[in-house]
């Protein structure tokens, strides 16, 4: 797989030379692969928000570089603007950024800024709305009449309408009820499957996304703590807990069983995997799993 985004020795400091000086990212390097679903996980203040704002050129690195498709995103002005559209960023509680009179016009904001033709904009609005399960009949309503879950999806559609190659979502399920959480995750997975776009989930809770992601980058105090597949990452539960993160319940139980001398793999992180392991042990009289 090719790398669609490369982060090289990135450093960013806020309020340099004031008493409030704070280094949010320190000498960070990692890559995001074309088409993968990546989990970017870290506790509040680990530098997540600052990092993602570098990925679409909202913030400029103090030192180091962010490359999109092999090219420095600050190479020239035109390219920086292109990256803004190619790397879609959905902030936390994106429904608070809705402003247009109708849902349709709000979703069209991004494509309009891209200076696309009327037809193309219309086509993209419909596509984006459908891809998050919004009915066409909702398009002419005011976004402020909708329910919380619907608003969230309108805001998500507003970014999807730009057809970004990389879609970055900061806590996309925060504050939703269980059904709403599940729906949002499914729409995003579908977008990945249908378009081959790269997805980055930014979160401090792993329970929801553990089953969805291909790879995880864990941040701690402005630096990368570890990178790997969910299996690799969740087998280091103690490091994760120390970094202020919660781990999936399945991984937690597996860890407790291992401590009791029961031979379960430390790489377990979903309920299904754990149930499988227990069933095997149970059937095989506890010898091997």
């Amino acid at each position: 797989m090719d790398n669609i985004i490369e982060v090289l020795n990135l450093t960013h400091t806020y309020g340099a030379d004031t008493p409030f000086e704070h280094t949010a990212i320190e000498d960070m390097s990692f890559e995001i692969k074309q088409g993968e679903i990546l989990g970017l996980i870290g506790h509040t203040g680990s530098g997540k928000s600052t990092l993602i704002q570098h990925l679409n050129g909202l913030l400029k690195p103090d030192s180091g570089m962010v490359k999109f498709c092999g090219r420095d995103i600050w190479d020239d002005k035109q390219f920086t603007r292109e990256v803004r559209f190619s790397v879609g960023l959905v902030f936390q509680y994106p429904e608070y950024q809705l402003f247009e009179e109708t849902v349709e016009r709000d979703i069209a904001f991004g494509p309009t800024n891209m200076k696309l033709s009327e037809d193309e904009i219309r086509e993209r609005v419909l596509y984006a709305a459908r891809s998050v399960g919004l009915d066409d009949s909702i398009l002419l309503k005011s976004p402020f009449e909708l329910s919380g879950g619907q608003k969230r999806r309108v805001a998500l559609a507003g970014v999807i309408a730009m057809k970004p190659k990389v879609l970055i979502l900061d806590e996309p399920t925060a504050g939703l009820d269980p059904e709403g959480r599940e729906e949002i995750l499914n729409y995003i997975k579908n977008y990945n499957k249908e378009t081959g776009a790269t997805i980055v989930f930014v979160t401090h809770s792993m329970e929801d996304i553990a089953r969805v992601v291909d790879r995880i980058v864990v941040l701690e105090k402005s630096k990368i703590l570890m990178t790997g597949t969910p299996k690799e990452v969740f087998s280091r539960t103690e490091d994760l807990i120390r970094a202020g993160l919660t781990i999936p319940v399945a991984a937690e139980i597996a860890g407790k069983l291992a401590k009791k001398g029961i031979p379960v793999s430390p790489a377990i992180y979903t309920i299904e995997q754990l149930a499988d392991a227990i069933s095997t042990l149970y059937a095989g009289g506890g010898k091997n799993a």
């Binding site: 009820d177 269980p178 319940v249 399945a250 139980i253 309920i271 754990l274 149930a275 149970y282």
Partner: peptide, 20 residues
């Protein structure tokens, strides 16, 4: 009812459905 159950319960439920 549009809700879930805690994962611990989900685990037990899965085990139960497998006859454990």
């Amino acid at each position: 009812l549009g809700l879930t159950v805690p994962n611990t319960v989900k685990l037990m439920h899965t085990l139960q459905s497998r006859g454990l």
